[in-house]
Design a protein around this nucleic acid. Structure first.
Length: 632
DNA sequence: CGAGGAACATTA
DNA sequence: TAATGTTCCTCG
């Protein structure tokens, strides 16, 4: 964010948090490993814990909370170092399964504390997501049940710093140009660009972040879920005292926690639940920013855009051109087998907000990611064509709900979540992108939940409640656009890792609904090619290496760069410093391959080496030490 | 399309 | 200036 802009718009980018920075940052947690028993990954070669990112499920189960590694003001993480000795040798193959990490995170319950916004933005923070100091995580309920009465104050599930849920309204950012203004002009509205996915190219505007936006847009509170329930359940948002509080706090400088809590409350109390994207936040937004008639969240993608977007509006325009085959019928509410038209079957009057942490299993039910997505998927910008669906090492990700014996189909929701050390929440800079085409076998439906796109996929009993996720791509939103959103505290730079988050809401015979959630391993979404390296030959001090972790089949699980330095204390040994890339921590003692580039970007021009962890555990990037082996 | 690679732009 | 972010281009 540019100060100039801030001034110009009279708003402070940094959300002002009313709570004192807290920060109980428990170092031990950060370094301790965490076991992730709850995540089910069928693929043995996948290194689930590669990034050591906590799975929401784990967190929840542990009833612990997860603290940020770096409290506000604390020095930035030091670059982890990996020792490389050029002479040792290890077969690349050794790598494979040794990997499994797992970490056990010490959990402790802490009262919810809010992060200090300023600290959060502290330049010293390499990781945009690292400043949150702590948060509590309630786990009393093993699962979210609609009938529950949430205590928002205590509900740690509410992610205070969750960005996406923050109201997009930006009255102060209004621009002369209306969102509706015809194209041609640079993006005038986030809506347009962000959600519409304009293909048009936007010249690299020299003004980049300086662009001003109008959040108005078309916004018409249209699009209700095609199958949105018409009635409203007993819970009435309006009756909630907390909601009223919310409204009042829903101001420019309101602390996010409040906003989030409100959102959660709204979600929980809203009759239509998630279904009604137009409710809740939008309302609040209007209150605080009258100038904006419409909220981003209310917007629907234009029909002209990618196919499938129209579904959001199908309510009014049934029979819009549907994708061939699978997509079409599926979306047509009425007679379809899965009948999206039957809201009550899977729609709860009070679905939990997307930033709430939910368990992956409850009672007999268990939502599992049978096949994890690959650790890298280059997201596409609106200015690009789709880059396809997220893939898995073998085909596509697969998700399955176990323990469900009913014959009623359910809806599996998917959205792109964060992959940092904080609680899982919708990612502000990435959105799921519905993929359609001949190669896609799974029908899907796109919906908006606040500022988050949610892909809905049918979970059918005939398929054993198993879904192959071959219809989900990832869209990258421009950092400058998102960062300008009022209330947004996350920064996009170097915040390129995401997780696929799946949810399913099961209505039990008792009438209660159980919501489960499972999130994938982290997925790096940036292009990230190795940098050109000024390297003479092999290990040269100051040279850089491409740090790569590979799966058995040779696919990359992830990669990052590192610099090579000489370790003064050990002859023949060089240290590779791995940048604290977004605070990612190496899961465990995994064997890793790294490549040394000799000046070209071509992978073929890298010389490959393999790291083998020297000791085996409790490594976090900032402390691990690997012995390396020249492998080629 | 759907990748992969890069040039060009913006930041830190 | 190096590292990242975005937009373009090209190829199968």
């Amino acid at each position: 964010m540019k100060s100039a802009e801030e001034d110009a718009f009279g708003y402070t980018p940094n959300v002002t948090l009313s709570l004192p920075l807290s920060a109980p940052c428990l170092p031990s947690q950060y370094h301790s490993l965490q076991s992730s028993p709850t995540i089910s990954v069928t693929e043995p070669h996948l290194h689930q814990g590669n990034f050591d990112s906590p799975s929401p499920q784990d967190e929840l189960r542990a009833s612990g909370y997860y603290s940020s590694p770096r409290p506000n003001g604390a020095p930035a993480l030091e670059s982890p170092r990996i020792e490389i000795t050029a002479y040792s040798q290890f077969a690349e193959e050794e790598v494979e399964e040794s990997a499994l990490p797992v970490a056990k995170r010490v959990n402790s319950i802490v009262t919810l504390t809010l992060p200090n916004a300023d600290g959060y933005r502290d330049p010293s923070c390499l990781s945009p997501a690292s400043s949150v100091s702590s948060r509590s995580c309630h786990s009393e309920a093993s699962s979210y049940e609609s009938s529950f009465s949430y205590n928002y104050d205590n509900s740690p599930q509410n992610s205070p710093w969750q960005s996406p849920s923050v109201s997009p309204k930006g009255s102060t950012l209004a621009l002369p140009g209306d969102a509706h203004s015809p194209a041609g002009s640079p993006r005038t509205s986030i809506t347009e660009d962000t959600w519409m996915g304009q293909r048009g190219s936007r010249p690299n505007s020299p003004c980049g972040a300086k662009r001003k936006y109008s959040f108005n847009g078309s916004g018409t509170p249209h699009n209700k879920y095609p199958y949105s329930p018409t009635h409203s359940p007993g819970l009435s948002p309006q009756t909630s005292p907390r909601l009223s509080v919310t409204d009042e706090t829903w101001l420019p400088n309101t602390n996010q926690y409040t906003n989030s809590a409100i959102l959660a409350a709204i979600n929980a109390l809203t009759t239509d639940g998630m279904v009604d994207l137009t409710e809740g936040i939008p309302t609040k937004a209007r209150k605080t920013s009258l100038e904006h008639s419409a909220m981003l969240s209310l917007k629907v993608e234009p029909l002209s855009e990618e196919m499938g977007h129209s579904e959001l509006c199908t309510e009014d325009r049934p029979g819009l051109k549907k994708e061939g085959g699978y997509g079409g019928g599926f979306l047509d509410v009425p007679q379809h087998p899965y009948s999206w038209a039957k809201p009550k079957t899977y729609i709860s009057p009070s679905l939990p907000a997307l930033d709430w942490q939910l368990p992956s299993s409850s009672g007999q039910y268990s939502l599992q990611i049978e096949v994890q997505p690959r650790s890298h998927h280059r997201a596409h910008y609106e200015t690009e064509g789709s880059r396809g669906a997220v893939k898995a090492l073998t085909g596509h990700p697969v998700v399955q709900l176990h323990g469900y014996m009913e014959s009623e189909p359910l809806t599996l929701q998917l959205f792109i979540g964060t992959a940092d050390d904080r609680l899982l929440r919708p990612h502000a800079f990435y959105q799921v992108h519905r993929i359609t085409g001949k190669t896609v076998s799974t029908p899907s439906h796109e919906a908006l939940h606040n500022n988050t796109k949610v892909l809905e996929i049918p979970l059918l009993p005939e398929n054993n409640m198993r879904a192959i996720i071959d219809c989900a791509g990832i869209l990258k939103l421009r950092n400058s656009d998102i960062e300008l959103r009022k209330g947004e505290t996350d920064i996009g730079r170097k915040n390129t890792r995401v997780r696929m988050v799946f949810r399913v809401h099961i209505t039990q015979s008792s009438g209660r609904m159980v919501s489960l959630q499972a999130s994938s391993n982290p997925i790096e979404c940036s292009q990230r090619s190795a940098q050109e390296l000024p390297l003479g030959h092999n290990f040269q001090p100051d040279s850089k290496v491409l740090f790569v972790e590979k799966a058995q089949d040779g696919h990359h699980l992830w990669e990052t760069e590192a610099k090579v330095d000489r370790d003064g204390s050990k002859p023949n040994t060089l240290l590779v410093e791995v940048p604290p890339y977004r605070n990612q921590r190496l899961s465990t003692p995994v064997h890793v391959n790294f490549y040394v580039c000799n000046g070209k970007r071509k992978r073929s021009q890298y010389q490959r080496f393999t790291f083998v962890p020297a000791t085996g555990e409790n490594h976090s990037l900032d402390s691990m030490s690997y012995e390396s082996a020249l492998h080629c």
